[in-house]
Design a protein around this nucleic acid. Structure first.
Length: 485
RNA sequence: GGCGCUAUCGUCUAGCCUGGCCCAGGACGUCGCCCUCUCAAGGCGAAAACACGGGUUCAAAUCCCGUUAGCGCUACCA
């Protein structure tokens, strides 16, 4: 045993394509991926689409898109359960043959009735095992008639079952608590537990890392492994992600699709970092971690046992951190998309004005809350037809003296050569002194005229970035504001 | 209802296994001050938590029991 070479770690992410990749699924995928990468193992992607009615190709695409965005590359797959139905049927037949499963002729209608009756009488309902006790003759007769039947698992006699969960520790469930669950429905279609176990076995999964909503499913699956006389993988269940109201995160909390976060201007590395901190921490106080850090430091032992609330404010903070720390080169393609979305993109930004485009990004990035913000708060750097914030104009352009001062300032800038950080500041401050006004008055007014906003980078940096001509042109727009007042 | 799981600042968490270093540390958010041409950033500081009740022990956030609350599962869905 000890001389055996370490077994390759194989983990899988197995979403069911009944919606786009949501935040909870993404976190599960991330942890699976981190675990595989940390151990140099394999990460397998499997699409659980046995419920044909609720699955669609479009949703599969959405899941793959979300994973690609987050940089979660898989080594094998995607495998589709819908294409593996024969194997599940064969496995079910094998279990019937070995006496671990039986045919059940109870109809869904009958079951529903019994369940409702039990509920009315305030009794707990569990399949009573009617067909489990059918004689061989009765079964043969039913089969001869071609009666539709499901295949049910025969839960073995026994006191209780326990298993060790890598995050929750020992979990114990009484056999009496587990009902004879359906393996194949009456349309000969496999259900969840069967297909999961068959696939995890066939794909040689060593660690089942999935959401905590599966803890109570695990005993059934362990029973299945035993019936197949197969080796049972390790299980690690992840705490759930909750909305601000502490209910399991869902559509009614607003955005839950991962690609929607991309569209809102979040950086995948920020989102990934944020997700990693939901239910896991490296143990010290480190919060900002690159992908390599994450891979290196990730371990199942440090996963929490309690659910975590999705806090968008912390996500925003991380996003700002990452944007501020990113190079213009990294940001450029993303900013380009944001600008294209607002019809602000111009080919020259990738040509003659590429340098200008990059330096604008560098100037703006430390203040941007999202990528989309470049096309909002930062738009004056990319177009002359920028939006002027009304409140900003009202606040910083209201002084009547500006009507005289700004054109004067524009004149002086026009003749200024060279037009630099130092020279432009000198000119502005000199004028302020001369006219006995605070430099701040001119500075703040100029910022609004130049960018349409009361907030932004230091003024002289803005002017140098825009250049002398644009600066003077925009200053002349003061007339449009003074008439309004 | 039954079964299972969980419980540290508003939120994410460290500490819990291996009691004492914890009148509980960090981060986001909030508030204040400094810096300052605005806003960010940065610096400094503040308010803010061991769910409750019993045990065990010289000593409990840490171990045990109970209560409460939350979440999950409870389908011929996954």
């Amino acid at each position: 045993m000890s001389s055996m070479p370490p077994k390759e770690i194989r983990v899988r992410f197995a979403p069911s394509p009944t919606g786009y990749l949501h935040v909870g699924g993404a976190r599960t995928a991330l942890f699976d991926w981190l675990y595989a990468r940390h151990h140099g193992g394999k990460f397998i992607l499997r699409i659980e689409d046995t419920d044909v009615e609720r699955s669609s190709q479009e949703m599969v695409e959405g899941i793959l898109e979300g994973m690609r965005w987050l940089g979660l590359d898989w080594d094998e797959g995607p495998f589709f359960q819908s294409q593996r139905v024969d194997r599940y049927r064969a496995a079910a037949a094998e279990l019937v043959k070995s006496g671990h499963a039986y045919y059940c002729y109870c109809t869904p209608e009958q079951l529903k009735e019994r369940r409702e009756l039990a509920q009315k009488e305030k009794r707990n309902y569990k399949y009573e095992g009617t067909c489990r006790r059918l004689s061989t003759e009765q079964v043969a007769a039913n089969e001869a008639q071609g009666r539709p039947r499901a295949v049910r698992f025969k839960v073995p006699e026994g006191e209780s079952l326990q298993y060790h969960d890598l995050v929750f520790g020992t979990i114990e469930v009484a056999h009496a608590q587990i009902e004879d669950f359906v393996l194949l429905n009456s349309k000969n279609h496999p259900t969840y537990h069967l297909s999961v176990v068959v696939d995890d076995l066939e794909m040689r999964i060593t660690h089942v890392v999935r959401g905590a909503d599966h803890v109570s499913n695990t005993p059934k699956q362990i029973l299945l492994y035993r019936a197949f006389e197969a080796e049972i993988p390790e299980f690690a269940h992840l705490p759930l992600i909750l909305g601000p109201d502490k209910a399991k995160l869902s559509k009614r909390h607003g955005t839950t699709s991962v690609t929607a976060y991309r569209d809102m201007g979040y950086l995948p590395e920020a989102f990934r970092n944020f997700l990693a901190l939901l239910g896991w921490s490296p143990g010290d106080n480190t919060e900002i971690m690159s992908t390599d850090d994450l891979i290196e430091r990730f371990s199942l032992e440090k996963i929490n046992q309690s659910n975590a609330v999705f806090d968008v404010q912390k996500l925003d903070w991380l996003n700002r951190q990452y944007i501020g720390a990113s190079t213009a080169e990294r940001l450029a393609p993303l900013v380009r998309k944001a600008l294209e979305g607002k019809n602000l993109w111009r080919a020259e930004f990738d040509g003659d004005r590429k340098e200008y485009f990059y330096s604008s990004i560098d100037l703006l990035k430390s203040r941007m809350h999202s990528i989309n913000d470049f096309a909002e708060g930062g738009q004056a750097f990319f177009t002359d037809l920028f939006f002027v914030d009304e409140a900003a104009a009202k606040k910083n352009l209201k002084d009547p003296a500006l009507k005289e001062l700004i054109p004067l300032l524009a004149d002086r800038f026009r003749g200024l050569d060279p037009f630099t950080l130092e020279s432009s500041e000198q000119v502005l401050r000199a004028l302020a002194d001369e006219k006995q006004v605070k430099a701040g008055l001119l500075i703040n007014a100029t910022r609004v005229l130049l960018t349409g906003r009361a907030v932004g980078p230091p003024l002289f940096h803005i002017m140098i970035q825009l250049g002398r001509d644009r600066t003077t042109e925009r200053l002349e727009r003061i007339s449009q504001f003074t008439t309004v007042n």
